[in-house]
Design a protein around this nucleic acid. Structure first.
Lengths: 282, 282
DNA sequence: TATAATAATGACTTATTAGTCAGTTGTCAA
DNA sequence: TTGACAACTGACTAATAAGTCATTATTATA
């Protein structure tokens, strides 16, 4: 396990400098002081490595932020804390954040793209919940649009922090964005992203082949210990190969696995898969 | 010349789909129905191709926008027109815009990075001028920050337009952003990007080796016809190899070539080079 | 029509990559 | 000390890339 961690850490440095495409496995192993073969004992492929990196950091970054936001008692300060935590994470994991920026739209690997979208949607959800809590009914028509503006702020200021070695005062940055967000929330009246566009956007972008899905399931089954989790996964796998369960049962099984952090991702994929299956017949 | 244009058009399609790295020269030539050798009659390398693409589109996009903004008589509508033109260009040249998003931060090739920064700075300048004209003294402390927010809006909504096939109402989008910009300009009081950070940011990011610079100069000398332009370039080249001209003369020569569109880029590089040279001695 | 000049070809070289696997080294229990 | 097992190695394969160049096709000119 220590070796796996070593590879991830060293690879992270190289990916941040040169990007994923332009970093060879050779380079990574040299940087670690191990042989090429040893790399393939820890990871099935180079792709598996980057997927592991993304999972590790994204789930941490998002759960950090989500935790800060949902546990905050003082509404006054919540927005400030959201921004502050967000940029603090970015700074702390700057190597990873750089990769994220570089590889985001660029990618080729389908699973990678879906993964990015998944985490992006999680972040959107966190922001939306926060906005609804802070501004409630008043922003009913503009809330999705507001979420997008906030994402715009985050992306452009993150870029500044990461790629221009500017001395950054996170407190000042968070304060500044709190003011802007309040302004937009309380005064903006013309949304661009309406409920309709928001729904439209959700429909696109999510395809995995059955084979990919089964493989991911298989991988999960290996890593998982809890019997409840394991059985749910097995049943769901059988249901994919030969549909036999009622929608309610499927939904229940999904709920079962969803509560385990390591299964969140596969639960998302499965839910999506079954949703598309059902829509096919209309 | 027709062949060069053909290659650029076809390559653009492939780059937009797969990215620059993952598109081979072979693929491009097949897509064009020509041989590999023919490609190298038009372009010295694959890198030269993408640089040419960037020059072609970026200069067009920015001058389009700049023209609309500087010629607009009606201040009321100028901001609307800025946003509208910006997103219209993005939509019209969507293949190119996709490349831009994909390759922006990712890049490896030094000249490419510098080129992106150059055009980015041009856009910043256009936005800043517009803001100063519309809001004047009132935004003295917040203007650089405002420019950044606008860039954030543009980047996040462009992404939406390009990568989620959402039906887009550009009029609505422009209106929405005009309202937001006005809100921020008239009510925001806490800037993050102060004059100081802005200056700091300008100092970083611009290195070319002398050899690269000389090569680019050589290339320009070949393409250029006007005697005044040609002589200025020749003198500047000599001055790099063996400094002999006074600062005032250098500045004059730079002004000479700057007015020719084809030399804007090399003028920018030269000015930067001499600036760094002078700072070295402090 | 004959000749020169230019345009275009694609097999080839060289370099690099991800991934494999037969063999080596190290470890630890019997 | 021995033997069995896992951890590890790095030369190797197969695939693909950018860029070259001797050869051929096309066009212009005399």
């Amino acid at each position: 396990m220590g070796k796996k961690q070593l590879i991830m850490e060293k690879a992270l440095e190289l990916f941040a400098q040169q990007g994923f495409e332009l970093t060879s496995v050779q380079q990574i192993t040299e940087h670690c002081g191990i042989s090429k073969g040893a790399f393939y004992l820890s990871f099935k492929s180079k792709d598996e490595l980057i997927l592991a990196l993304i999972d590790q950091f994204m789930s941490q970054m998002i759960s950090d932020t989500d935790y800060r936001v949902t546990t905050s008692q003082n509404d006054e300060k919540t927005l400030y804390e959201f921004y502050f935590t967000m940029f603090q994470s970015t700074q702390k994991h700057s190597d990873f954040a750089k990769i994220l920026m570089k590889e985001q739209s660029q990618s080729f690997n389908k699973e990678l793209v879906i993964k990015f979208h998944y985490y992006d949607r999680l972040l959107e959800k966190t922001i939306l919940t926060l906005m609804e809590r802070l501004f409630g009914e008043k922003i009913e028509n503009t809330k999705h649009d507001l979420v997008y503006c906030i994402k715009g702020f985050i992306s452009i200021y993150s870029e500044l922090i990461l790629f221009n070695n500017v001395p950054v005062d996170l407190d000042q940055l968070a304060q500044s964005l709190v003011e802007k967000t309040n302004l937009l929330a309380t005064h903006a009246t013309i949304p661009f992203i309406t409920e309709e566009i928001f729904q439209f956007k959700r429909l696109t972008h999510t395809e995995v082949t059955i084979d990919q899905l089964l493989e991911i399931l298989e991988q999960n089954l290996k890593d998982v210990e809890e019997p409840l989790e394991k059985e749910s996964l097995t049943l769901l796998k059988q249901h994919i190969l030969e549909p036999s369960l009622s929608p309610a049962v499927v939904e229940g099984l999904l709920k079962n696995i969803q509560s385990y952090p390591s299964c969140k991702w596969v639960a998302f994929l499965l839910r999506n898969y079954f949703k598309l299956e059902n829509n096919e017949g209309r």
